[in-house]
């Protein structure tokens, strides 16, 4: 019994020392991590909607806390007037969640750009969704009707060509964008 207590005590001390070391590292790196995450977020927003003077996080105003796909709403302002909306959406892809940024222009009512923030898709297949040519397939699409994924060259204005051999990923990204598009149409186009 005494032996067991001694061993437990030794293990406890080891855990405490290791915990201390890790906490210290965390205290040092936490501000840097927060800073770089903020930077990535800001750069992402700028990339998706470049023509803005100010971008404000208005998630609380537009979303209920338990939305399964839409995660964040940022509104872009120019000369004090809202000109664009950027959504952060999360949808289920082939290997796990895909987090995507999608921007809409209020005046022209089109998609400005998209950007994949994080994913766990297969390298070489679904992971190609991060390539610029995939984002280009969405640029300029009208935000008045749902987008549809097709496997050939798109015929119709709201068709988007899937990545070869990665239809599941393409569909997942499009599903998230459609959800955002729907919210955008209801709250920003019809409301004005």
């Amino acid at each position: 019994m005494r032996e067991a207590i001694k061993l437990g005590f030794f293990l406890l001390i080891t855990c405490a020392l290791v915990g201390l070391g890790v906490s210290y590292t965390n205290a040092l790196t936490a501000p840097i991590i927060a800073e770089s995450e903020k930077l990535v977020q800001e750069q992402g927003l700028m990339e998706v909607y470049s023509d803005a003077e100010e971008i404000k996080d208005e998630t609380e105003k537009y979303l209920s806390s338990e939305d399964s796909v839409l995660k964040q709403v940022n509104v872009a302002y120019k000369a004090g007037k809202p000109v664009g909306v950027i959504y952060t959406v999360e949808s289920k892809g082939y290997g796990g969640s895909i987090k995507t940024l999608v921007g809409f222009d209020i005046v022209s009512c089109t998609i400005t750009n998209i950007k994949i923030l994080s994913h766990t898709e297969t390298p070489g297949l679904g992971a190609q969704a991060t390539e610029p040519w995939f984002a280009e397939r969405f640029q300029g699409k009208s935000a008045t009707a749902d987008l549809e994924v097709v496997k050939q060259t798109p015929q119709d204005g709201n068709e988007v060509q899937a990545i070869t051999a990665a239809t599941v990923t393409s569909k997942a990204v499009t599903l998230g964008i459609n959800e955002a598009r729907n919210h955008f149409q209801v709250n920003f186009i019809e409301a004005f």
């Binding site: 080891t14 855990c15 290791v18 070391g21 590292t25 965390n26 790196t29 991590i33 770089s36």
Partner: peptide, 16 residues
């Protein structure tokens, strides 16, 4: 425990 500690440290450093 020792290994897990160092893994967490390098994880935090890489994240930063």
């Amino acid at each position: 425990v020792v290994i897990a500690g160092f893994v967490t440290i390098i994880e935090l450093i890489m994240k930063a």
